[in-house]
Design a protein around this nucleic acid. Structure first.
Lengths: 119, 119
DNA sequence: ATAAGCACTTCCCTTTAAGATAGCAGTTCC
DNA sequence: GGAACTGCTATCTTAAAGGGAAGTGCTTAT
């Protein structure tokens, strides 16, 4: 049943490829995680700062998503013992490895807007 | 309020960046679309072929997702007038612009598996 | 005539994601 | 002492995503 051999992965490779994509999707899943990561890629942010910039997110969502990302080693949570208590979130070194992905999502989204405009 | 100016986008840029990510997420949204695109990146496929390789997807999902991708110009659907009717799906030129993204998702997923293993 | 293959569509149901609203604990400021 | 700010958590409800099974329309094979 032959398309060209060179442009197809074997079935086993194919399954491995799919599993990998699914693993990535598991980490980034939902409406907000990529956005949170993209924000934190620009530097540390505090809880209410995140909530303000991510317009529309509720506290429940935000804390749930941050916990998910923390558990998976993407985000680091630090409580500073400053006068008014404050909690800072930032990407871990590992979290930063997602930057090419979030950048590519942003890049494609921008290209997509141009594409729609010129149709 | 100053992190280094060079590593932060302005608020307006930030919003534009987020909107772009959201647009991309809209196109790729759900459990199956990225997988379908990754499959079709390897070449044309027929409906039942897709369903067989994407283990677990139901006919309803598959046709819904394919329609969504077709409407958005990612996928091209062709009915061949062969003896047993067959329908072929492939990426459009525009759909192929998503390859860097799906590749990066696969790449990160594989790296992630290694990361978990070495912890 | 019957059966089987392909590409779907329809209907119904369960699970999950997301949103709105409220509340709480610990400061600090007035 | 009351209000306000920060960082949450809990509850309740709604909306959307996803899955299973069955059925449709067409064609070819037996």
């Amino acid at each position: 049943m032959g398309h060209k051999l060179t442009e197809n992965l074997s079935d086993t490779d194919c399954v491995r490829h799919f599993k990998a994509i699914q693993d990535t999707q598991y980490i980034l899943n939902g409406k907000w995680k990529v956005l949170i990561i993209a924000m934190l890629a620009q530097g540390k942010r505090r809880y209410l700062e995140l909530q303000r910039i991510l317009e529309g997110i509720g506290s429940k969502m935000l804390s749930k998503e941050l916990q998910h990302l923390e558990i998976n080693g993407i985000v680091l949570r630090t409580v500073t013992n400053a006068k008014p208590i404050s909690v800072e979130y930032e990407l871990t070194a590992y979290g930063k490895t997602l930057k090419p992905l979030t950048d590519e999502m942003a890049r494609w989204g921008i290209a997509h807007k141009h594409h729609l405009r010129n149709k």
